[in-house]
């Protein structure tokens, strides 16, 4: 078993490292620039990992360049790896949850429509592996004070849904919500009456990652698509401003990534890594 595995990631290495650390198998041993070194918590439980980032559109090039392991959600890379007999692909656990941050109240009888909306979003809106959120913990974590009432801020909010311009999944979800605003408005009504009322005037707009939630809180947007890493505890959602109504995050879908590795690594190393990142239901030790 190699002493360390060179793992290319298309997401932020810090985010992946934090997720892996949260899962308990690894801990961060060193950070050098955009490269993160992880070591196994349990001796001989697996190789240490060196995470370095590759461009999202360069995942296939990384494969062709002979990287040991690639952790990505890019469907084109996954499809490409499937055509390569020397590569194997293992899904990770559902490690990211997307929700809609808004201030408006949610209809109490909207659960069926909300499920329909989640199904709708999970089946075509995004290009990564996704599934609708069912019994998510995020909504209960993100709104400890309960659902806020519609505030004056939300009444004058601009008819737009913002997302992080660095997140393709969030952009796709926002775009689909915009599209549904004219074709299936009842689904948006399950989220928020103000969203449904905006209808055709609703726009999607990418903003800086650090300002997504702030746009909603200051009335710059009626809603924001936010991504919350799935940790063992509650999702971490840092919202600025203590004097504003508590926002509500309506979970929509969750996504996961794929571990693409060369078949030559099959064995204890890959098994250990797959066990570390994989869903216990799918990739056991």
């Amino acid at each position: 078993m190699p002493a360390s595995l060179d793992v290319a990631v298309t997401d932020a290495p810090d985010s992946i490292a934090a997720w892996l650390s949260d899962r308990g198998a690894y801990r961060v041993s060193e950070r050098v620039g955009d490269t993160v070194h992880l070591e196994s918590v349990v001796a001989d439980a697996g190789p240490s990992l060196v995470l370095h980032r590759v461009p999202a559109r360069g995942a296939r090039d990384a494969i062709d360049a002979g990287v040991d392991v690639l952790l990505t959600s890019d469907p084109d890379a996954v499809a490409y790896a499937a055509t390569r007999p020397d590569l194997t692909s293992v899904p990770s656990a559902w490690n990211r949850e997307y929700g809609l941050l808004l201030l408006a109240s949610q209809s109490s009888d909207a659960a069926p429509a909300l499920d329909t909306l989640r199904d709708e979003l999970a089946t075509g809106a995004v290009r990564v592996e996704s599934r609708p959120v069912r019994a998510s913990s995020t909504d209960s974590c993100a709104d400890p004070a309960g659902a806020p009432t519609a505030s004056a801020t939300s009444a004058v909010a601009r008819a737009r849904i913002v997302y992080s311009r660095a997140d393709d999944v969030a952009r796709s979800l926002a775009a689909r919500l915009i599209a549904l605003g004219s074709s299936r408005r009842e689904l948006l009504a399950a989220l928020s009456p103000s969203l449904a009322n905006a209808g055709d005037s609703l726009r999607a707009e990418g903003v800086d990652p650090g300002t997504v939630a702030g746009e909603v809180l200051r009335g710059g947007a009626v809603a924001a698509v936010v991504a919350v890493p799935r940790f063992s505890g509650c999702g971490v959602l840092t919202l600025p401003g203590a004097d504003v109504p508590s926002p509500r995050v309506v979970p929509l879908i969750e996504t996961r990534e794929r571990l693409i590795a060369r078949r030559g690594l099959t064995g204890r190393a890959l098994a250990a890594l797959a066990r570390a990142i994989g869903d216990s239901a799918q990739a056991g030790p």
Binding site: G124, S172, A175, R176, I178, A179, S182, S183
Partner: peptide, 9 residues
């Protein structure tokens, strides 16, 4: 031009 507009009539 609007990938997620599918299914609209």
């Amino acid at each position: 031009h609007f990938r997620n507009e599918y299914d609209r009539l």
